Simulated assay, not measured.
Amino acid sequence: MANWLEAKVKRLIWWNEKLFSLVVTADIEPFTAGQYTKLALQIGDERVARAYSFVNPPSSKNLEFYLIKLDDGTLSAALARLEPGDSVQIAAKSHGFFTLDEVPSAEQLWMLSTGTAIGPFLSMLQEQQVWQQFQHLVLVHCVRHSQDLSYKEMILELQEQYPQLHYVPVVTRERDATPLTKRIPQLITSGELFTHVQLEASPDMAQFMICGNPDMVKETSQCLMDLGYNRNRRRSPGQITVEQYW
Results as ranks from 00 to 15, higher is better:
161 Q>R: 15
171 V>Y: 06
234 R>Y: 05
126 Q>H: 12
207 Q>E: 07
48 V>G: 12
239 Q>P: 03
118 I>G: 08
228 G>P: 02
241 T>A: 10
110 W>K: 01
116 T>K: 07
60 S>G: 04
124 M>F: 06
186 Q>N: 08
74 T>N: 10
19 L>E: 06
41 L>Y: 04
133 Q>F: 05
218 K>C: 01
122 L>N: 08
180 L>V: 08
55 V>C: 07
195 T>M: 02
52 Y>G: 06
221 S>A: 12
233 R>P: 03
25 T>V: 14
163 P>K: 06
27 D>H: 11
87 S>G: 11
151 Y>L: 07
226 D>T: 01
9 V>F: 10
228 G>V: 00
139 L>I: 08
193 L>F: 10
161 Q>G: 07
85 G>N: 10
218 K>R: 14
165 L>G: 07
58 P>E: 09
203 P>F: 06
94 S>P: 07
81 R>F: 02
22 L>Q: 09
19 L>A: 04
144 R>Q: 15
236 S>V: 10
63 L>G: 07
56 N>R: 03
30 P>L: 09
139 L>G: 14
166 H>Y: 14
121 F>V: 02
132 Q>G: 15
154 M>R: 15
66 Y>P: 09
157 E>P: 00
132 Q>P: 00
2 A>P: 14
39 L>Q: 09
45 D>T: 12
232 N>D: 12
32 T>C: 01
169 P>I: 02
53 S>G: 12
235 R>G: 14
82 L>I: 07
149 L>C: 12
145 H>C: 06
59 S>H: 13
170 V>L: 03
147 Q>S: 14
124 M>Q: 11
9 V>Y: 00
234 R>Q: 12
75 L>Q: 05
115 G>Y: 00
86 D>N: 14
28 I>Y: 06
163 P>S: 09
117 A>N: 07
229 Y>I: 00
63 L>C: 12
109 L>G: 01
103 V>S: 07
13 I>Y: 06
136 H>A: 05
24 V>Y: 05
82 L>M: 08
222 Q>N: 07
140 V>F: 05
241 T>F: 06
12 L>G: 06
233 R>N: 12
169 P>D: 08
180 L>G: 08
115 G>N: 02
94 S>L: 01
120 P>K: 11
70 L>A: 13
197 V>F: 06
30 P>G: 07
102 E>D: 13
47 R>H: 11
7 A>W: 05
200 E>M: 03
203 P>W: 03
49 A>L: 03
75 L>V: 04
147 Q>W: 06
94 S>E: 02
76 S>M: 09
218 K>M: 00
37 T>V: 03
72 D>I: 03
1 M>H: 11
236 S>P: 00
72 D>K: 15
143 V>C: 14
25 T>A: 14
82 L>E: 05
90 I>P: 06
234 R>L: 10
185 P>I: 00
46 E>K: 15
44 G>E: 10
203 P>S: 08
112 L>Y: 13
115 G>S: 06
18 K>M: 02
33 A>G: 10
24 V>A: 03
87 S>A: 15
40 A>E: 00
59 S>F: 01
194 F>S: 11
100 L>Q: 10
184 I>F: 04
171 V>G: 08
68 I>Q: 12
98 F>L: 10
16 N>Q: 08
204 D>Q: 13
155 I>G: 09
